[in-house]
Design a protein around this nucleic acid. Structure first.
Lengths: 244, 244
DNA sequence: ATTATCTATAGATCTATAGATAATGC
DNA sequence: ATTATCTATAGATCTATAGATAATGC
């Protein structure tokens, strides 16, 4: 008898003999079509996976954890998403697409409206404020996604690759605008400046609670408006100090 | 018959009947005392665990992976370190202690030597350059540790707690010096400034290779001197711009 | 005599799939 | 008829420990 069989046997022995017919999950909303319900379950799984991945990382989460939180049978996670990697990628790409395109549009608009009068402050405000508004006011899902993104961005190999794939164009657009705002600056200085901006933004998105404790409550990790009020100008001054 | 028994049986069947007496690992250096060899094995396990944790995080590494890389029997990891958490903490604390004390001493010396003439640049150079030298020139172990620290710092809950426990005093010392250099500034602004510095430093330590790809090779993730040449002044300008 | 190393194993997972059954769609 | 859900399970891990054996210490 295999281990599994003995566990099953033990379980059967302690279970009531007269089990009710397996209780399938009833339709949550009779009014929803099959396609609508599929979409809803998919989102539900994505939301809970996002939450768990943001707290414990890819390897710190099991598919069973996800199923349990999403309140679906554990085999359904494999049914809706082929495997764990597919699920993780789906979680990451869902919102990556949104922030990527929002920022790209914002930068293009800034570029058009302020052609001939580009500034580092302007470019950074456009890039950062768009994101900080999104993460700050987009609800719990966006906050979780931010924490996840910060972990991914600090993960070598596949993490960096995932960032490259999603965000290279929008970052290069930002760098290009800053470069035109500071034509005398060297590209190397500007790239390192972006690197500093990126690190500061990512730690903000992580919302680790560390700044709260350090400042004895003066600052709060989830106070995105406070970051928005300071970050672009702080970084712009940095660019100007180094790029000359 | 349990699964394990059948696996063992199958294995025995395919193994040569006349197994040599189990080949214990011979002394690497006959000259080493038992205590010295224990210390060496301990360091070996710590080094390889550090490498693996830095690449895949706490949950992405198994004790068997560590044992294999460290070239010790897999049960020895539990023998030398009670369990996985103990091992992880040992890895983290080993170098945390060094960087913590190095920076604290550097800041105290800066404070003493420049009493009455404290500057943001000076404080930041002291804090950052000490660390960047260490991670840049300390060898592979320190580079791995840096990547690990950046992951820990971006991990909510236990990650942030581990950072608090190890680095709060030295950070508060830095904040205090900056505060005295900018007496008119608000504490809130200074703490947010530190938050930006911290994020930028951590992403540097992560050495994800992202800046290399973005800049098409102009910048390199492991070019700590390039960061050292720019970071303190960049950030000091940020503090001054926001704190007034 | 003490410490380090290895054998063997318990017990608990985890991921993924095949196949059965129930619910919706047309 | 098609899709969603559940049952049952294979097969592969993983962590941790008890107990045996070999190597060093005194």
């Amino acid at each position: 008898m295999t281990i599994h069989a003995s566990i099953a046997a033990a379980h059967a022995a302690t279970s009531p003999k007269t089990r009710r017919a397996p209780a399938r999950k009833p339709a949550k909303e009779a009014s929803l079509s099959k396609a609508e319900r599929r979409a809803e379950t998919t989102e539900q799984i994505l939301d809970e996976a996002e939450y768990l991945f943001s707290k414990h990382g890819l390897y710190g989460v099991t598919l069973k954890d996800v199923a349990k939180r999403a309140d679906v049978h554990h085999t359904l996670v494999n049914y809706y998403f082929k495997d764990k990697d597919t699920l993780f990628n789906a979680v990451f790409e869902r919102r990556a697409e949104v922030t990527r395109e929002l920022r790209m549009k914002a930068l293009e608009e800034y570029e058009t409206v302020n052609a001939g009068n580009l500034t580092v402050e302007g470019a950074l405000h456009t890039f950062l404020d768009t994101d900080l508004d999104l993460y700050g006011s987009g609800g719990e899902g966006w906050r979780n996604y931010g924490a996840l993104a910060s972990q991914v961005a600090n993960t070598p190999e596949w993490g960096a690759k995932l960032m490259d794939k999603n965000f290279d164009p929008v970052v290069l657009k930002l760098v290009d605008i800053i470069n035109r705002a500071l034509p005398q600056a060297s590209k190397v200085d500007i790239f390192w400046g972006y690197h500093f901006v990126s690190g500061a933004l990512l730690l903000t998105l992580a919302r680790t609670g560390r700044i709260d404790k350090l400042s004895d409550g003066l600052c709060r990790s989830d106070d995105f408006p406070a970051v928005k009020a300071r970050m672009a100008d702080f970084m712009a001054a940095g660019f100007k100090a180094v790029c000359k």
